[in-house]
Nucleic acid binder design. Sequence first.
DNA 1: AGACTGATATTCT
DNA 2: GAATATCAGTCTA
Length: 198
Amino acid sequence: MSSLLVHSSDPSEPGVKLFARHPADVARALIGMIVTVDGVGGRIVETEAYHHEDPASHAFNGPTPRNAAMFGPVGRAYVYRSYGLHWCLNVVCGDTPGSAVLIRALEPMSGIELMQDRRGTDMLRLLCAGPGRLCQALAVSREHDGLPIDQPPFTLQPAMQEREIAVGPRIGLTKGVQTPWRYGLAGSKFLSRPFPKS
DNA sequence: AGACTGATATTCT
DNA sequence: GAATATCAGTCTA
């Protein structure tokens, strides 16, 4: 199978179609795909888009040591620490530098025992329901920052033909609250929070 | 159920 | 010094 990454400027490369687009498109496209780290992971059921012109984005005020990966090639991981405690996993994307998609929740599929050990709970619903929990379950941390999202230790592969996608406002923000760039697999029991009814 | 709190890296004022 | 793309625990109801 071919690489999902953008290592060439050939627009027929799958990675170009997937990642070199507006982060809202990419966030939508990632729903239903399967991501693993060292064989541990599952189906992506929740994402959020962050555009470089969006005040909620870490890239809004330009490059810093923390957000450097957001200004590198698309298709790489951007991993940052949240509230000093948790790690959060993003995929760098966009047609211009400085955009990314936050992966907020997974439906656990492989390596469930390892996830349970790392999380200290056997509750499937809470193993990967939230960006911090997800990174704890998959053991994602600073060492993954900047790594290609479709090469070891990562895998990323399409896994669903048709799916219904829920849309809503992003979670935990004070800026850009009204921009509805949160996406989810409709009806999934593994969301970090339900989507508000339209 | 919802409200509050503590942990504490990184950035911004 | 204050805010933040969080989570778990512990209160109050």
